[in-house]
Design a protein around this nucleic acid. Structure first.
Lengths: 186, 186
DNA sequence: CCCACGCGTTAACCCAGGTTTATTTCAATG
DNA sequence: CATTGAAATAAACCTGGGTTAACGCGTGGG
């Protein structure tokens, strides 16, 4: 069941007869936003390639990174999709990124009415749940040093394409603290 | 869509013709485990009343609490259900708790094959996703003090039924640190 | 070619929270 | 009624990470 084959999942979505002509292909350049914190964005984005960071800006001017989406993936703001509320985080492209977007409600209806697609969607939600459970475990149970080692080990390809600032803000520490950890580990 | 009506959701599950006689009713007393960290538990538990804590024991002998489930809810170990792996956390009853358990695979099949139930399940997974997103935000972006204030505000009924030790371990700090925070807030 | 800027690193200082130990209270049990 | 043990608090000390500031490096634009 898990792991998920995004390639096939996204292909089946895009091939679905009831979604023909509904999707919108967009190419974002490095530095462009898919959506910004505070905006209401009721789309779902099927990502084909690229690198996106989802992050929060706090009141005291800090940035903390919720997650990265690399190459294939599905993303959006649940708060906006489900409740029509402003997104609590932004989606910023760190590299050129190609996505296909659908109105969320239509997307969900089509998936729920399709015997096969609903299974794909269900698998995706379960896969995402496992991912988020691991993330929760790291934030709750691991020291910054252990979380960093874990991140290096689990995401070697991602690490190469990120700055130390972004890695630190994903781990919940400052880049200075990360620099100290790296020094400690040598 | 969100918030979720657990009462109706669980009722529809238990009333489903293909789940008749499949579920097992169990009453756990305070201090009893529904499942333990390290065990493989491929059931899903529909909780009717009670209070459960889901928590990790780390190698260095510490306990960190993933979440609480109060009164109505659905719980289980995704790692076990989906991948047949040992559960990374335990489910311990803090009060007398009544649950109805189903083999996960059967439960999922029945839900996915039922036009209405699959919508309930989908809503539940989305609701859970929103919950977990908020939890991630608290662990990533908030100080212990702010997370505590947030917890008090969002879970007033839960707070009354928990010890300070458990609240602290949910927040990711020691009970001593929580005691200091409480002192600071007066 | 030079300048500005973002990135990574280092150092000095500060603070929130961890660790250890001890005391008090209170509820459960013998 | 006495004993035990868990919970909460407190004090003293330690430590990892935050803050601020400075410096070197590479890169891209003027």
């Amino acid at each position: 069941m898990v792991p998920l084959d995004f390639e096939s999942f996204i292909h089946r979505i895009e091939a679905h007869p009831q979604l023909q002509g509904v999707g919108l292909r967009t190419v974002y350049q490095k530095g462009e936003y898919i959506f910004k914190q505070g905006e209401i964005c009721q789309k779902v984005f099927c990502m084909h390639n690229g690198l996106v960071k989802l992050y929060y800006n706090t009141q005291d001017g800090k940035e903390w990174i919720k997650s990265f989406v690399l190459d294939q993936g599905v993303l959006g703001s649940r708060s906006s999709q489900l409740m029509g509320k402003p997104s609590p985080f932004s989606a910023l492209c760190l590299e050129k990124t190609e996505v296909q977007s659908y109105p969320y409600k239509r997307f969900a209806e089509v998936c729920l009415d399709d015997h096969d697609l609903v299974r794909d969607l269900f698998n995706f939600l379960q896969w995402l749940g496992v991912k988020k459970e691991i993330r929760e475990y790291q934030l709750l149970c691991l020291s910054a040093e252990d979380a960093y080692k874990d991140f290096l080990h689990t995401n070697p390809k991602l690490v190469e394409r990120l700055t130390q600032v972004d890695i630190a803000h994903y781990l919940g520490i400052t880049p200075i603290a990360l620099s100290r950890i790296k020094k400690r580990l040598t």
